[in-house]
Design a binder for these strands. Structure first.
Lengths: 208, 208, 208, 208
DNA sequence: TATGAATGAGATTTCATTCAT
DNA sequence: CATGAATGAAATCTCATTCAT
């Protein structure tokens, strides 16, 4: 009847609802199929298995967000932090871009970040933290180590990476409206940058 | 056989391992019992049910941490933020105390914070965040609103509460050694206090 | 394999056997499934749970018997007992009808009356007794109380209700053949009516 | 400590409560022991198993009631029904005696009659009915068959045996007070005897 | 006498997945 | 393209009973 796509779309829509409500592990294939008005077997024509269904909802978003992030980090890594002077608002372009992407794919991102436990995406937050940690961190370490008697505080670097990422997660969970999100991000970014700028340096003897 | 206490302890140890590895919901009572070398029925002699077993691992810690936190928040709520001037290191006593408690019960705290989904403790992180949010937040709002043309940015308050708590969670996950943890917490706390002090004020027209 | 309906029917048949033999509470789902030649999960495709399986065997019968009874009692309640003169056999139509229904659903009725402990039907006998007690009883009490110096003996009314119902239960257990059952019911009904007519009156001073 | 008997008595008392409340099958040995303030093992010192515990509560009563019944039936069997003319109240001695015994052992009798499903006593009601059926029945059949063109209606005999027994069961369940029970039994017995006297005769051609 | 730990077999139910049709 | 039946393995929990101490 040409409802090839219809059924697939319906399944995806119902799966999104179910995964959102209960998370991957506690979601029920039966419920998804029932809501979609098909029988349990049907889903296996379109998707390999439960995880395949989840993937279909998030993978595009996952790929593009990771790519955008990678690109941004690569560019940032080239910057010379030593000569860097922060002026209020100068990270805005990237922040605006990423917030736009996140909100444009609100559900998929939420699934990835908060509902993926039990899938291959379950460590995606940690992955992103590690990427930022490595990228920013390497750069920071290089810069700090060139200052005599000083060194980078690796724990602070990792923690700042952590809360930077969690800030975006927090955003999606707590602020529905993209414009409000942008307004909130201004002071938040200021504060984070303040951290990166002022608190990652420590005296060399503090080392273990 | 003199293993009067041994079995109970063994069960607790194996349960700790299993819950740590898989979280409460995905942990298997069978596995726990098998590892402990007893039959599935045995556990029900010592503990009411799966959640009772989990409780036995975490409840003492839960109670004492919550009490300590409550006490600290009550004291803090009396402070006058308007006249407050932060001097580096002046939160140390409480921070040292709480870090000590957390590390003394490292596993239990980890179970509570990260592995308790499916139990009555599953919202403990949110509870703590809300407690801090209300306590610090109320105080901050009072102070800010008394400044003409200004108001408190509630999103920032909630976010700062959030990352403050997550900082302790982060600690337990990433730093095994209590002394290193304390050293890390100095700059981290400075940074957080910097946030509470400098970034929660916004112009009144910014309001929606 | 064309056993679309066969399995469901087989499950019902095996369940009937098992429930008949052991009663609801002591019946084993495993046994039922094993006898039916399917795995334990299969039954949950057709029925919600153990009680759902039981319901499937008895609910239709339950509904129709209760309806028939209700209808009969409503009609009877209008009769004027004071002017009532029993003529042998004049209850036959209803008795014949109900006996016909009971025998047409012999197994279901037996399950309902004797094997339903643990289900929502477990008090069905008491319910029926209470219905009869209220209906006949109310009428009897009205009639008796209008006689000076006399009153209805409530214990007798309840007991007559009780043995009236138990007579039908007795029937199903002891007489396999509907025709014989009808023949037996003639004198039995005569005797019961004799009870209702002659033994429910007591002197007023007999009261406590 | 000489509390040999105390523990045993306590166990019996708690078992009586538990069996009364839930019936044999659904009673829990753990509950009984907990209520009695001993551990699960203790009961197996005094009683062989769950059924042994139940037996200890009912067997004496079972034996004596059965003996009394047997004796009464044996005497009755010798009577010549043909020359028997019922005068109101002439069964009272035996009825009074049996009611006295039943009420003196109210709990034990109730356990036997209504709570024994799952034990060797579970068919005790049917046994008693069969005893009465055989005894009264045999006598009745002999008498009836000596009347030309007539015969005994075996179904009526069995049914009358049935409701006669159920009347005593009904009594224990519905009337707490022995004196009230006696008062109720007068008209009830009249009615039952009326049944035995008037309704067990049928024409010979009615036979199957 | 009585304890307290442990057994072992059983119970019902859930669920993703498969496959002939 | 989809159905509907069935699988099979897993889950948690209950309970009478046993036995060394």
């Amino acid at each position: 009847m040409g409802n090839d796509l219809e059924t697939r779309e319906k399944l995806l829509a119902c799966a999104r609802e179910e995964f959102m409500a209960k998370g991957f592990a506690n979601a029920s294939m039966r419920q998804i199929c029932t809501k979609a008005g098909v029988t349990t077997g049907a889903v296996y024509f379109f998707f390999k298995d439960k995880e395949g269904l989840f993937s279909a909802l998030v993978d595009d978003t996952y790929q593009s967000v990771m790519q955008a992030l990678q690109k941004h980090l690569t560019e940032d890594a080239k910057e010379d932090l030593a000569s860097y002077v922060h002026e209020p608002g100068d990270h805005d372009p990237f922040v605006e871009e990423i917030i736009h992407v996140l909100y444009a794919n609100h559900d998929a991102v939420t699934l990835l970040l908060s509902k993926s436990s039990g899938t291959k995406y379950e460590h995606v937050v940690d992955q992103v933290i590690d990427m930022i940690d490595s990228s920013f961190g390497e750069n920071a370490i290089r810069t700090c180590d060139s200052i005599p008697g000083k060194q980078a505080n690796r724990y602070m670097i990792h923690w700042l990476s952590h809360i930077s990422v969690m800030t975006f997660v927090h955003l999606l969970t707590h602020i529905k409206d993209e414009k409000k999100a942008l307004r909130f991000m201004k002071p938040a970014m200021e504060h984070l940058i303040c951290g990166w700028t002022n608190y990652i340096l420590e005296d060399k003897q503090d080392n273990e």
